[in-house]
Simulated scan of single mutants.
Amino acid sequence: MPAASAATEAKRYGRFTLRQWVGASVIGILAIIGAATIVVQLTRWFIGLDFMQDFMATYPGETHLPAGAPVGLPAWLGWQHFFNVFLMVLIIRSGLQVRLERRPAAYWTPRWSKGGAGKISLNAWFHQSLDILWLVNGVVFVVLLFATGQWMRVVPTSWEVVPNAISAGLQYASLDWPLEDGWVNYNSLQVLAYFATIFIAAPLAVLTGVRMSGLWPKGAARLNRVYPVEWARAVHFPVMLYFVGFIVVHVTLVLTTGALRNLNHIYTARDANDWIGFWLFVGSLVLIAAAWVAARPSLLAPIAGLFGRVGR
């Protein structure tokens, strides 16, 4: 009987059986829907109060751009956007692999290394190589941003951006979303989100990544005391989670606030409502998915071998 009972016992996936996982998922989804409904109703009640009506009228959710600010999005911004997303998705994937791997499929050692110095896993080499490409792409992006005046669209130029961002956030939370006209001007919450991503989160990712990489001078005792690797590790992973959250929210809003027009802004540099931008978006997803699948040791090892030694 004990053997029969063991044979008929439901298979577990982690701590729970499949039925338990399904039940927990249903309960979790219902709880999220219930919590979201409460937030929406409370927000609508709050912004319906007299003093909040005055606040929303004074701060509608966006600030005026400086004189001479460009209108529309240039083609280079679309290409930069694609390269950035392409690299970030692979960086997040490889970063999680480095964090979770126990027995690397292979190791990479620099050609100049003596005695195995600088030896890292193949996944770590891929992650750091992607980081370098992402950094180069980011530098080009920032240079073009300031050279073309596009910085005025993503850098706050007035303290009024703060109350307007609060107003925009309340409008999103009430599901009475602020009017979208990204071709001309972003709302203040978008401005703060883009500014934080470009000028705060990205530099933090670079500074902490360099500290954890083989590029950091291991023998610099004083420098290592000033900037311990533990600090970098404590910041690097939360920054990655921020980027994941930003991507999810960003894509959701792009698709739910006028998908065809928004995708044409990003992929065709046009203020149009046709399907060209949508199909380019789909094509970009196919390329990213193909790179995700292709990034295996069998493909990475020969490429890594061009820049160092690959082995066990």
Rank of each mutant, 00 (worst) to 15 (best):
A301F: 02
M152K: 08
G14T: 02
L144Y: 00
I27E: 13
F246L: 13
I120E: 09
S213D: 07
G169R: 04
P156V: 07
A36L: 12
R44T: 02
A67F: 12
A165V: 00
D181V: 11
K119D: 13
A202W: 13
K218Y: 15
S213Y: 04
L223H: 14
L135P: 02
S213F: 14
F243Q: 08
T197K: 08
E9S: 12
W183P: 01
G115H: 02
P238E: 07
H64W: 07
L145C: 02
P66R: 07
P203F: 09
W279E: 05
A301V: 08
Q97F: 14
S174V: 04
A165Q: 03
V85W: 00
A35C: 03
G277V: 03
Y267A: 01
A291V: 05
V40W: 08
T37Q: 11
E62H: 13
V154F: 10
A220Q: 13
L299F: 15
F307G: 00
A106W: 04
D271F: 10
F278G: 06
A124F: 10
F83T: 08
H250M: 02
D131Y: 14
R99P: 07
Q128H: 15
G28I: 13
M52D: 02
F16T: 01
G115R: 05
P104D: 10
V282E: 04
W183K: 00
V71H: 11
V229A: 14
V39L: 14
P203H: 12
G78V: 03
G277C: 02
I166Y: 09
G48F: 10
A259E: 02
P203D: 07
A3D: 15
V142H: 01
L145R: 04
L170E: 09
H64S: 15
L30Y: 14
G308F: 06
K114I: 11
G311E: 03
V310W: 08
T252P: 04
L73S: 04
L280G: 01
M88A: 08
G283D: 01
P104W: 02
W134I: 11
W108I: 10
V40K: 09
L130F: 12
G34Y: 06
V142K: 03
F82I: 14
K114R: 15
A165M: 00
L189G: 09
L96Q: 11
V244Q: 00
S129E: 11
L122K: 00
Y194R: 05
N84V: 11
L189D: 04
D181I: 02
L255G: 00
K218G: 09
P228I: 08
A290F: 08
A75N: 07
V22H: 10
A3W: 11
A232S: 11
A105M: 01
M88L: 09
G219A: 07
A105E: 06
I303W: 07
L299E: 00
D54A: 13
W21F: 13
I91C: 11
A117V: 14
I276F: 11
A232L: 14
V251M: 10
L223Q: 13
P228D: 05
A106S: 15
G34M: 06
F83M: 06
M152W: 06
W159C: 04
N137Q: 12
L133D: 04
T197I: 01
S174P: 10
G245I: 09
A67W: 10
I166F: 12
L189R: 04
K119I: 09
V254E: 00
R211W: 00
T268N: 06
